[in-house]
Amino acid sequence: MYYLGVDVGSVSTDLVLLNERKEVIEKLYLRTKGKPIAAIQEGFKALKGKYENVEIAAVGTTGSGRQIASTLIGADAVKNEITAHAVAALETDNDVRTIIEIGGQDSKIIVLKNGIVTDFAMNTVCAAGTGSFLDRQAERLEIPIEAFGDYALEAKGSVRIAGRCAVFAESDMIHKQQMGYNEGEIIKGLCEALVRNYLNNVAKGKEIQSKIFFQGGVAANLGMKSAFEDALGKSVFIPEHYNMMGAIGAALIAKAKAEKAGKTMFKGFDLAESIFSSKSFECQGCSNGCEVVKIQENEAVIGCFGDRCGKWGSELAV
């Protein structure tokens, strides 16, 4: 039996399959590109021939697209990213005390004690320092994002970059480029600025204790890891499946939930071939004026979101 976890994030859609021993046997990292349904279908296409529907014992979804994913797939558990990341990290190592998670547009800190979450925080006003910003800078410097971290590691010195705001950080980088600093130094400076920003905003007032896990897509950037280690004076661990932790957490939560329920809600891999369409409209029922989104699979309505009163059916799966 296998357990499927789906994390639909702003930048990537991740799918993992765990086996009975909770080991990752399949992982897919796909770009969401603003089309969560298409990304899920792409992932399912890749899994379809290899696994049978009946082999899937539980499905969990997480990420900003967790509701839509749940409607499509038929999820046993729909969990927020914070809990999913914490569950996955605890499965890897029960002694973890701090989780630094930086994804496409969110950055989070999760504080744990004795294996349970005691505090957390999330960026609220600014996305400086998250994956999409780094993506954009890599593109602008014409360096593949995968190599971004190596440039930082090889740099001898660093340039101070103003990292409080993404737009100003970019102007400052351009300014430093034009003054003649080399790319490596600028990238290292950028990593340090982003770490400073993270520690001053997201992690403000939180006690960061070892063991520290660094996960989410940005953990691929070794420059960020070493900047964190320098700033904290502590070692930072990157778990093996750092960019899949959300999906792994969702699969683990779903496993527990489906075992309790004794069955799964999984609709099967066939949705890879279905034609999905979504329509949004403003409900005129009352002065709330909710924006309702209707999801259709092969012309049949499978779910509606966004209404407050439940008129269009916002059944809550928690």
């Binding site: 900003s64 969990k79 809990t83 349970i116 979450v117 957390f120 999330m122 609220t124």
Partner: peptide, 13 residues
């Protein structure tokens, strides 16, 4: 989205 995520995570906590 971020608002709900924080509320849900808080309830889980």
């Amino acid at each position: 989205a971020g608002y709900i995520t924080r509320i849900e995570a808080f309830i889980d906590l």
